[in-house]
Amino acid sequence: MKLRLAILDDFQGVALNMADWLALKDRVEITVFHDAELNFEKLVERLQPFDLIATVRERTPFTRQLIARLPRLQLLVTTGMFNRSFDLVALGERNITTCGTTSSWVSTSEMTWALILALARNVHLENLAMRSGKWQTTVGAGLEGKRLGLIGLGKIATHVARIAKAFDMEVVAWSRNLNEARCKEVGVRLVDKAELFSSSDFISLHYVLTESTRHLITARDFEMMKPSAYFVNTSRGQLIDEMALVDVLQRRSIAGAGLDVYETEPLSPDHPLLLLNNVVLTPHLGYVTHDQYATYYTQTVENIVAFLDCNPIRQLRTPPT
């Protein structure tokens, strides 16, 4: 009997077109799921029949509780080489093999700029107004000479800084462990958190989510922002106090926000953010590009073949703390 493989969270219905699944044709039976199952019992019921599961990023968390209910599971494949929504200890205890794929951070940096520019020039609003027959409803903001504040200065933020300089912006940065040497290397100015929030025209968050960084950005920080300033988050929703951000946006005490990530995803249909016209919203698309998906699914197939050949590759690493 063939092993059963579930491909989860294929929201756009593209997984089967992104790689050559024929390599698995004679060895596994594939079932594709296009929606996220948010009800735990229904999720258990959905996943129980499968020996192999392939998922994307952190769309379905594999907790100890869930893993305990999936006795057939032998292989869990995700995308990227870290996945903070997996309980690797529980998976290890059950001897379930976990594999990942390479992942490029370029897509997220490009998404960050898509949001900054859409916000600055009201692209989403003007495009929508054009569809209803209107003409020139807003006056945008320029980037040149403005200050970009980066929270975090890892790979993505460093790339974001490079683009900012090509736009002739001034770049400042802050993070808990950031030092002068790192800033000098990237060519940005180190500031404290208060200066970053009170002086930047655009603020972009690029931080790793851990227990200690949950709600790193609070109401106090948002209150310090200039009324003309914009806040952008393509990192993780839980890094900020989302309701505090909603509050400053509703009061128009900042100019706007560009958000790709949310405290809970998919975003609830009655979330107050959906009613605000001073925000640009995208549904966690930072890593969602053809280029990334082609890499993800090609390597997912390779990972499954290698596992079936008893020679697993790209086994997941423990995330850095």
Partner: peptide
């Protein structure tokens, strides 16, 4: 960006396109 923003607001859809 503009398409996905409108989809989230008007149709409550999540992740419609691959960029």
């Amino acid at each position: 960006v503009a398409f996905e923003d409108a989809q989230m607001r008007l149709k409550k859809n999540w992740q419609m396109k691959v960029g």
